[in-house]
Design a protein around this nucleic acid. Structure first.
Length: 164
DNA sequence: GCCAACGTTGGC
DNA sequence: GCCAACGTTGGC
């Protein structure tokens, strides 16, 4: 009998930020298999989430940052757990990590993410802020710059509801 | 374009 | 190990 309460089988929820000018949710919908490598995360806390906790099947809120307006465009899903990000060793990549390359130790991790569905209504930051259930949501806290954030199931459901 | 908040770097 | 300086993020 599978232990559905075990840590490894619990579905988790995440919010992942992307600047739509660089890569938007519609870009993800248009991508082959609606899937992309989420490369270029260069923050240790975000890296640790992807390396230690991301699992295929986890839910993702696709957040447009540095956008007008900012907000959640749709839902995606983790289809591959953390594995090394080759861009770290690629001098041509904007995400090249020269110091890591010199040491020949790649500390950076990426995951694969697949679009599930675009929201009927784009959930603006203003809408998120107006929802009492999202009072504690990390992305709404002032100065919250982390590009990969954990989201509770209740928050995930509340955001999904706002979008549908 | 401004600037507050944050993470990282490096001098000491 | 402290912390000032710096670069970046991202809402506004």
């Amino acid at each position: 009998m599978p232990d559905i309460m075990s840590e490894t089988s619990t579905r988790r929820y995440w919010l992942m930020k992307s600047e739509p000018d660089v890569f938007s949710f519609s870009d993800l919908l248009k991508a082959p298999k609606k899937t992309t490598h989420w490369e270029g995360v260069r923050n240790y806390q975000a890296r640790n989430f992807m390396r230690d906790l991301f699992q295929a099947g986890d839910g993702v809120l696709f957040y447009h940052s540095n956008a007008e307006p900012p907000g959640v465009a749709g839902v995606a899903e983790v289809v591959r757990a953390g594995y090394p990000d080759p861009d770290a060793f690629n001098p041509k990549s904007p995400y090249y990590d020269e110091a890591a390359h010199a040491k020949k130790v790649n500390p950076w991790i990426m995951v694969d993410v697949k679009a599930v569905k675009a929201f009927k209504t784009f959930v603006t930051r203003e809408m998120l802020s107006a929802e009492p259930k999202l009072k504690e949501m990390m992305v709404l806290k002032k100065g919250s710059r982390l590009s990969v954030q954990p989201v509770t199931e209740a928050e995930f459901l509340a955001v999904t509801k706002l979008g549908s």
